[in-house]
């Protein structure tokens, strides 16, 4: 109900200024909370693309921003902010727009007709090197954590449901005509392509929407976020079994600690909730190279619990990371980790 009231206020010109004043403040807060970690405090870019760049601002509509915030870019790190209210999304759009004094572009939703097959050839020739053979985007996203900041920004995924829903044909065409000055994306009119060529490319890019989901937009599904095995052994034997299984699966184990370690005085912890921490440096480095945020799930750990007389071995299913981080580049690694975890837990409870 209050949100309808706020919408009503938006419509009342006379009351606009006080509301906008606070919408601005809230926009700043919302941006700092939800976007700044990736796009930089002032929209100067980071893990995400620089949003304050004049050439970017000149080429996008408010609606493009709105939709991108709502839908995100599945598999490409940019999250979908599905829990924000409409008023919050508006406040964000307003805030991001205020970095640029130019008027927002508006685009028709009118489809652009073109020769898709010819567009496909042109795409392979002129775009694939940066945007990927199937439009899945450059390796890594934005200017990633894992690369020095002075490298040019990575090409976004075009074969992505979030991008395709947010960008009308006319906007894609305008981007090809004008490029984005200050980024590796250049004007293809300047590079000698004709307007019809651009129409053909746009029509090819649009056809991604009817093709199977690109690998870069796919995230792993998990039926159960926790992998659990019942152990036929007693508690102590199971702990020893886990340690042995960790080693025989090419990991080394480190600390073996009760869950309550550090929460209460030493000696008072529940000794029937034990965590075995383990690691494999090769895998660790690989994971951190793809997405440094995965450090929060490292080192790996398996828990042994005795609950109501039953001994169980359990761990977080590493596959949940794919969706949690919205990063399809983690998929293969998560699958491998999931297999290793299962192997360790199977071996320990065999």
């Amino acid at each position: 109900m209050p949100s309808r009231f706020v919408m009503l206020m938006f419509l009342c010109g006379g009351l606009m200024s006080p509301l906008l004043a606070s919408a601005d403040a809230d926009g700043a807060m919302l941006y700092a909370r939800n976007c700044a970690a990736c796009h930089g405090e002032n929209g100067n870019g980071g893990i995400g693309v620089p949003l304050a760049l004049p050439s970017f601002q000149a080429s996008i509509s408010d609606d493009y921003l709105r939709q991108t915030i709502r839908l995100g870019r599945p598999g490409r790190v940019m999250p979908a902010f599905t829990r924000m209210s409409d008023a919050q999304v508006e406040a964000l759009v307003h805030y991001v727009r205020a970095w640029d004094k130019g008027a927002a572009a508006t685009y028709t939703r009118q489809p652009i007709k073109g020769d898709r097959a010819h567009g496909k050839r042109l795409f392979a020739q002129h775009c694939a090197a940066c945007h990927g053979a199937e439009g899945g985007g450059g390796e890594g996203t934005g200017v990633t954590f894992s690369r020095p900041r002075d490298l040019p920004i990575m090409a976004p995924a075009l074969h992505n449901p979030g991008f395709l829903a947010a960008a009308p044909d006319a906007m894609i065409k305008a981007t090809l005509m004008n490029g984005r000055q200050g980024t590796p994306m250049s004007s293809f009119l300047d590079q000698g392509l004709k307007e019809e060529d651009l129409n053909d490319i746009v029509s090819y890019v649009r056809s991604f929407a009817t093709q199977p989901l690109s690998a870069s937009a796919q995230l792993l599904r998990v039926e159960n976020p926790v992998i659990v095995r019942d152990s036929p052994y007693d508690f102590k034997t199971t702990v020893e079994n886990v340690k042995r299984a960790v080693s025989s699966n090419n990991f080394f184990y480190g600390r073996v600690q009760p869950l309550e370690y550090g929460l209460t005085e030493a000696g008072r912890e529940n000794q029937k909730q034990i965590i075995v921490y383990f690691c494999n440096l090769g895998l660790l480095n690989q994971a951190l190279a793809v997405d440094p945020r995965v450090g929060m799930f490292l080192p790996c750990r398996v828990t042994i619990v005795e609950h109501e007389g039953k001994v169980q071995v359990m761990s977080v299913n590493p596959k949940v990371l794919s969706r949690l981080f919205n990063n399809s580049e983690l998929n293969r690694l998560c699958e491998r980790m999931s297999e290793s975890y299962s192997a360790i837990m199977d071996e320990a409870t065999l």
Partner: peptide, 30 residues
């Protein structure tokens, strides 16, 4: 007018406090 703007601020604040804001997966700040 002053009262109304205060009240508006309150409404917007309530929306922010009660409205579930944030990315669905991760909390990330700088």
């Amino acid at each position: 007018m002053k009262k109304l703007s205060q009240w508006l601020r309150f409404v917007v604040l309530m929306l922010l406090v009660s409205g579930p804001a944030g990315a669905d997966g991760l909390l990330m700040v700088r």
